[in-house]
Design a protein around this nucleic acid. Structure first.
Lengths: 342, 342
DNA sequence: TTGAAAGCGCTAACAC
DNA sequence: GTGTTAGCGCTTTCAA
């Protein structure tokens, strides 16, 4: 491979000048610049990134912590969508993405070790289960963080407006005449679970509907079996005071709800309405198609990338406690109808 | 950050010795080794990868070319699944994955430029649309390649047994009594399209069923609109000689087939059977659920990683023209039934 | 078994 | 505007 010395020799200038050309320094004669460029093209010169990183301490690498209960990895419909738009924006700015993992096995802060090893310039926290402690440690160690799922102390965040989304979907049910609305709550260890459950309670209160313990149940994990189990439990405990609608706090839970209701012989939406949250790809494909709230994953990824680039270029102008909420959108499909008035 | 010099000072040995300890050299005294390790742990030493790469010319980075018509990116159900298992195996061996992109914009061989810039140790070709020319150029430039979708000259490949899979699904239709089987062909510019179409023709011939031009149609692109367009065309041209079953060469095409048949008032499978190829996640969720052939994405990713590691460790023992075919599996669901005997 | 020192390819201070 | 050179943190030869 051609080095900067080869370019220097070929062009007749010094390595310093060549370096300046490649780093867009101001004080280089236009003619000189041109000759250097011609020489480097001629011999096929590409700067050695490792050498650059060694001296500048800039790797042009962004680490991503991408982890969820289901271990679906890349194809995870929610995180995958966010990451895709984040990635393509960062790439345009010259950064590449690597996935941080926990294979540096002897330490408690495994992700942090990986950050150090790769010398990443920044870290995207896209995980529903990364402990606060490790997130904070990574930021404290000097790695520029942006979060897209959890809110961590002093780390700017981009995420959906769960309060608004919950209100949209519950309000829609309300206008359809539903007053007895059950909720299957996503794991409360996740922020999404907590925020959506809180919003559910707020909504009931605002409408003057009493909160009933028998109409809510929490999923232990973000997994299909866990969701099914929760749904079965819920249905069993409210048999004599059956809801007219069920709000599943996450689409995958809603899929489980639909499946089990159908298995038990209920017609959706005629006997009971079902709604979800997220608008995963599947939501429009299952039968009946799911009324839900859309999270705008593309925008979340984009804003996260913007925030990251801003921090990378001038951290001073970013408020580290900033929380950017992204609008959600109601998607009415076939799993809902007017409540029966008996 | 602590450097190797700090460890040397702390432990009382030279940097050369410290380096030998970290690189598992044989000739280091056990006591010495222990002291070095203690010292480095004490000061939190992590080797600087850029410095290592600069001298060893090994980046522990694998580039992935991940590109398809639909630009779905990471969440692409087929490639995403393969990549996930490839990635986790490579990570265990100490490699990280980066995505090669085309943002190095002035050259014809953009992916190659990115390979050089990042100095990757190997490249996974996971693309249905990467030209032979560029693939070969990357391998020729000294980057260890493995392909999982296309077959390129002198690059080992792992991919599904399209011939076998096609035979499985067509044979199943045959046993159900179907003799008039139409095919919607995936883009013939893709290997999957060509192999599956060829297998379709072979099957007909073997069964003594004449091939009819009016019963086949090719999709222009791997996209939903393109699939819909092809399906409409097919249905129009075989109206007076209607098939009893349609073989869609890719699940997404099958989704389009189902949708359009239903729109036209056909009952699936009673009026006509539909089968696909791939077993995407959606296949089991749409209505009616799709009878299809499962590609084992997990195994494909795994074998590709094994092959890559083998090449990386000792390229001599790998046959560069090797093509590893992965078994497919028939998945019978609700989109098929016995052919009506009029 | 250990250490001294050259060199990997680059940037950036400083001198001219 | 341009060039000289030290040094980024590491590996590896060679000598001891």
């Amino acid at each position: 491979m051609a080095t900067i010395y080869d370019v220097a020799k070929e062009s007749g200038f010094s390595v310093a000048t060549v370096s300046k050309v490649f780093n867009h320094y101001a004080g280089v004669n236009a003619k000189t610049k041109e000759q250097v460029l011609i020489a480097s093209k001629k011999i096929g010169y590409i700067p050695n990134l490792s050498a650059q990183t060694l001296v500048t301490n800039k790797s042009w690498l962004i680490g991503v912590i991408f982890k969820e209960d289901l271990e679906q990895g890349l194809v995870h419909p929610h995180f995958g969508g966010i990451l895709e738009s984040f990635k393509s924006m960062m790439e345009k700015a010259g950064y590449d993405i690597i996935f941080l993992n926990q294979n540096f096995s002897n330490n408690e802060l495994k992700y942090l070790e990986h950050c150090r090893y790769r010398n990443v310039d920044g870290v995207l926290l896209a995980s529903s289960s990364l402990p606060e402690k490790e997130a904070v440690a990574i930021e404290k160690a000097g790695f520029t963080c942006v979060s897209v799922e959890n809110i961590y102390r002093n780390i700017p965040t981009v995420l959906s407006n769960n309060e608004e989304g919950t209100r949209q979907i519950l309000n829609y049910l309300y206008t359809l005449g539903h007053r007895k609305i059950a909720m299957v709550i996503p794991p409360l260890k996740s922020l999404a679970g907590r925020e959506r459950f809180q919003a559910y309670q707020n909504f009931l209160q605002k409408q003057g509907i009493p909160f009933k313990e028998d109409l809510v149940i929490e999923c232990e994990e973000y997994s299909v079996p866990s969701a099914c189990e929760a749904v079965e439990k819920l249905l069993n405990k409210c048999l004599d005071d059956f809801p007219t609608a069920i709000f599943a706090g996450y689409d995958q839970i809603a899929f489980a709800v639909e499946k089990i209701l159908i298995k038990r012989g209920y017609a959706i939406p005629n006997d009971i309405s079902v709604v979800g949250f997220d608008d995963l790809e599947l939501a429009a494909s299952i039968t009946p198609t799911l009324t839900t709230v859309r999270q705008n994953r593309k925008i979340i990824g984009l804003r996260a990338a913007e925030l990251m680039l801003k921090r990378l270029n001038d951290d001073e102008q970013v408020n580290h406690s900033e929380i950017i909420r992204i609008d959600t959108e109601l998607k009415v499909r076939n799993s809902t109808c007017r409540a029966r008035t008996n």
